[in-house]
Amino acid sequence: MRIALYQPDIPQNAGTILRLGACLGIAVDIIEPCGFPLSHASLRRAGMDYLDHVDMTRHADFDAFQAAQSEAGCRIVLLTTRADVPHTRFAFSPDDTLLLGRESAGVPDDVHARADSAVTIPMRPGLRSINVAMAAAIVAGEAARQTGLFPAA
């Protein structure tokens, strides 16, 4: 399983997601360009000393990312408010990559169309979205539970 960030805007959210990946053993892909310099200095506050423990891959653009996912046999599952399928009703696979869009704008329509599947987190009516790092944790937790990433308690 992997988490991918499409052109992230906010270094604190990216750092938090990298920390999540380190703690859960989930690799993280960064699809550039980023809205900030992608460096340890910009990610340090949220990522703390976990950044050395995450398997992170940078991709020059979405085409490079999609080619790598295709070569690895990974399905791209987009997290979006525009999906009809709740993440709790989706059958995740251990080879899935959870794709999250920019905090400011999500993903463009062409990227949305190129995802293999799309899921949403059910929310109360009238509210727009959940913070991208929180969304990553919610959906990664469900995907990990379904696929057995977490050992039985």
Rank of each mutant, 00 (worst) to 15 (best):
C23T: 12
A64M: 04
C23L: 10
L79A: 15
C23P: 06
L43V: 04
L98W: 04
I31G: 03
D95F: 01
M134A: 14
R75M: 02
M56H: 10
I130K: 00
A113K: 13
E71R: 15
G101N: 07
N131V: 05
N13S: 08
D95G: 13
M123N: 04
G141D: 02
P37A: 08
Y50Q: 11
R145H: 03
S70I: 09
H53Q: 14
G47I: 06
D84K: 13
Q7D: 06
A137I: 00
F62M: 03
G47F: 10
M1Q: 03
T97M: 10
S93M: 10
R124K: 13
A113F: 09
G47L: 06
N131E: 08
D116S: 13
A137N: 00
F65W: 14
A135Y: 02
D84S: 15
R44C: 04
A68R: 13
A152K: 15
A46P: 06
G47N: 07
A118K: 08
L24Q: 08
Q146M: 02
A153H: 10
C34Q: 06
D49I: 13
L43M: 03
V119F: 00
A133E: 10
P151N: 11
L51K: 08
D96K: 02
T97Y: 09
G141W: 10
L5N: 06
M1K: 00
E32G: 15
A143W: 01
T147H: 04
A91H: 12
F36L: 02
P94N: 03
C74L: 04
V107S: 07
Q66A: 15
L98C: 02
R102M: 09
A133L: 11
R58F: 10
V77P: 04
A115N: 03
C74W: 03
L99Y: 07
F65V: 01
P86I: 08
A144N: 01
L79S: 11
L78E: 00
S42D: 06
A137Y: 00
S129K: 00
I121N: 00
I17D: 01
Y6R: 09
D84M: 09
D96H: 04
H53K: 14
F150A: 06
A143K: 07
S129Q: 04
A152S: 13
M48T: 12
I121K: 02
A135Q: 02
M134Q: 14
I130V: 14
F90N: 09
P94I: 08
I10F: 08
A118F: 00
Y6S: 10
I3Q: 06
I76P: 01
G47W: 07
L38P: 03
D95A: 12
E103W: 01
R75G: 05
L51S: 07
A27K: 11
D109A: 15
P125S: 11
Y50G: 13
T57E: 12
T97S: 13
A4H: 04
D116T: 09
P86L: 11
G15H: 10
G25M: 06
D116W: 04
A152E: 15
D96I: 03
G141P: 01
A67G: 02
R75T: 05
M56G: 05
T97H: 10
S42K: 01
A91W: 08
E142C: 02
G101D: 10
T147W: 03
R2W: 14
L43D: 02
T57I: 11
A60E: 14
H40L: 11
D29I: 05
D63S: 15
M56Q: 11
V54T: 08
F90W: 12
R44M: 08
A153Y: 10
A143F: 01
